[in-house]
Design a protein around this nucleic acid. Structure first.
Lengths: 119, 119
DNA sequence: CAATCATATGCCTATATGGGCATGCGTCAA
DNA sequence: TTGACGCATGCCCATATAGGCATATGATTG
């Protein structure tokens, strides 16, 4: 079985760095396809394809403006990612706590024996 | 150019649902490969392959225990995901605010004209 | 109407994935 | 020592990408 399609959900759509760049640009303001292509320094068809993926997972919406198409962000599909990863937030802050403990122990030892042979 | 490899970063490693399941299990406690396979209802080789991906992006660590190998979670590589998606958190809460505004306006209109022809 | 602009889509390639299956390798127990 | 166990890895397949290029479709302007 092949990999989960990029259009399966926001997790997969956002795994591609270029698509995150596009979202980051759209976070500031609504933009046309050509503008995005110029800002990213890539070809227009490529941007259109990425936007198609983002549209299929609901991360962007389109609006017609003459012969241009203006895309704007819809961040709601990102919420599941936020919710999932938030459950792990304590994981890396706990590590900080552990580091604090280690540092405290080191400092304590230094005060006790004043040893210098530490890197 | 093909898709970004799953081992490129946590974004891609975690895009696969089965790998998120594995992390969710490891979040509770350290586990052996066979236990994970049994809990997920999949074959052992498949779990080993997913664990390999997770190991390559630093999301799990291994420890030898006799003829078993115990895997445990390391959530630190998830932090970039958390940081990136957190920047969009206001995106969907803003939408709630907008919805509140709309609902308030509707409610206000109803009080003013008492109209019933609303869906 | 003709020419131009903005965008979407089609075709092409190389690539590596998730899963199935068989097997190799190290560890333990009898 | 021999067997069984636990795990990793190899090979196989179908699939769908990201990107390049050419072109079709639409809207605008002259």
């Amino acid at each position: 079985m092949p990999r989960v399609p990029t259009t399966a959900d926001a997790f997969n759509a956002v795994a591609e760095p270029r698509r995150r760049q596009i979202l980051d640009l759209l976070a500031a303001r609504e933009r046309a396809v050509g503008d995005l292509a110029a800002l990213l320094g890539v070809t227009q068809p490529l941007v259109s394809k990425h936007l198609r993926v983002l549209r299929e997972v609901g991360l962007v919406e389109v609006r017609d403006d003459g012969r241009r198409r203006l895309y704007r962000l819809d961040g709601r599909p990102l919420k599941p990612i936020h919710d999932w990863v938030k459950g792990y937030e304590q994981t890396w802050s706990e590590r900080f706590d552990q580091l604090d403990v280690v540092l405290a122990e080191l400092s304590e030892q230094e005060q006790q024996d004043g040893s210098q042979d530490r890197q």
